[in-house]
Amino acid sequence: MIDLNSDSGESFSSWRMGDDEAMMRIVTSANIACGFHAGDPGVMRSTITAAAAHDVAVGAHVSYRDLHHFGRVFVDVAPAELTDEVVYQIGALQAMARVVGTPVTYVKPHGALYNTIVHHTAQATAVADAIKEVDESLAVLCLPGSEIARIAGRKGLRVVHEAFADRAYNPDGTLVSRREPGAVLHDPAEIGRRVVRMAADHQVVAADGSVLDLDADSVCVHGDTPGAVGIAAAVRSALTDAGIEVTRFA
């Protein structure tokens, strides 16, 4: 049994990113942008509406305040300021979800923030504090073995470990930087086989060929990857064919 999530709601005004309506027919959880790296109120509402129509769990995809770089550049923000910005983003998505009639059940940091709080204790603490202050029942979707997983767990938050269908891994279990060749995978069949191994054998092959142990509750397909809908469909089909139930964690 495993959850399948996607980064969603990342269009902005007249600029379109991905196909959220199609993705909601495939995934079981949607990490919806809250306006700091992508998304706007109309996009948030339409994406939440599509998620609710297909019984997809709604999560707040929080980020550094960085529309210009799509949230993919580290920001040396003070911890107290980061806490407030994460609170603000979760609250915005909660308000829109309340209007639609579905709850926000978890939080997943985005991009550079996600990667930074794998090892940055102060920012990881700031994010965990924000989530706990808003609603301690919210789960935290994050990388296994990360600082945010450790700190969030210590604070009594539910930690949900995540793997990545379409991203290459370093030998230490972190993600290969998008600046490096081969960081993003594109072959749907290959990705489908890879995810089955993640779910069934709890393993993934790193970029150097080594085999990593990987215990994940959810697998992410990035909504902005070219061909994302086809990749997500291939992953879900491969899991189903392998007898692995795809179901939401929250």
Rank of each mutant, 00 (worst) to 15 (best):
L113Y: 05
L113Q: 07
L113R: 02
L113S: 06
L113I: 04
Y114R: 05
Y114Q: 05
Y114T: 11
Y114I: 10
Y114K: 06
Y114W: 03
N115D: 08
N115A: 05
N115T: 02
N115W: 02
T116S: 12
T116M: 06
T116R: 13
T116F: 00
T116W: 00
T116C: 02
T116G: 01
I117W: 02
I117D: 01
I117S: 03
I117P: 00
I117E: 01
I117Q: 02
I117H: 04
V118P: 02
V118L: 08
V118H: 05
H119K: 13
H119V: 13
H119E: 10
H119L: 05
H119R: 15
H119P: 00
H120C: 12
H120D: 15
H120P: 00
H120R: 08
H120F: 02
H120W: 05
H120Q: 08
H120N: 14
T121S: 14
T121Y: 11
T121K: 12
T121P: 04
T121A: 14
A122I: 02
A122Y: 00
A122N: 03
A124C: 03
A124T: 00
A124Q: 04
A124R: 03
A124I: 00
T125D: 09
T125G: 09
A126V: 11
A126K: 08
A126R: 11
A126P: 11
V127E: 09
V127A: 09
V127S: 05
V127N: 08
V127W: 12
A128Q: 09
A128T: 03
A128R: 06
A128G: 11
D129N: 15
D129A: 04
D129T: 03
D129W: 00
D129G: 02
A130I: 02
A130G: 07
A130Q: 01
A130R: 04
A130C: 03
A130D: 00
I131N: 14
I131S: 08
I131C: 07
I131W: 10
I131H: 08
K132N: 01
K132L: 04
K132R: 13
K132C: 06
K132D: 06
K132G: 01
K132H: 13
K132M: 04
E133K: 12
E133T: 10
E133Q: 13
V134T: 08
V134Y: 12
V134H: 14
V134G: 13
V134I: 15
D135S: 08
D135V: 12
D135W: 08
D135C: 09
E136T: 12
E136F: 10
E136R: 14
E136H: 14
E136W: 01
E136D: 15
E136P: 13
S137F: 12
S137K: 12
L138V: 04
L138M: 10
L138P: 09
L138Q: 05
L138A: 06
L138D: 08
A139S: 13
A139P: 14
A139Q: 11
A139C: 06
A139Y: 07
A139L: 11
V140A: 02
V140E: 04
V140G: 03
L141T: 03
L141C: 07
L141Q: 06
L141I: 11
C142N: 10
C142Q: 06
C142R: 07
C142S: 13
C142H: 11
C142V: 15
L143S: 13
L143I: 14
L143N: 11
L143H: 13
L143Q: 15
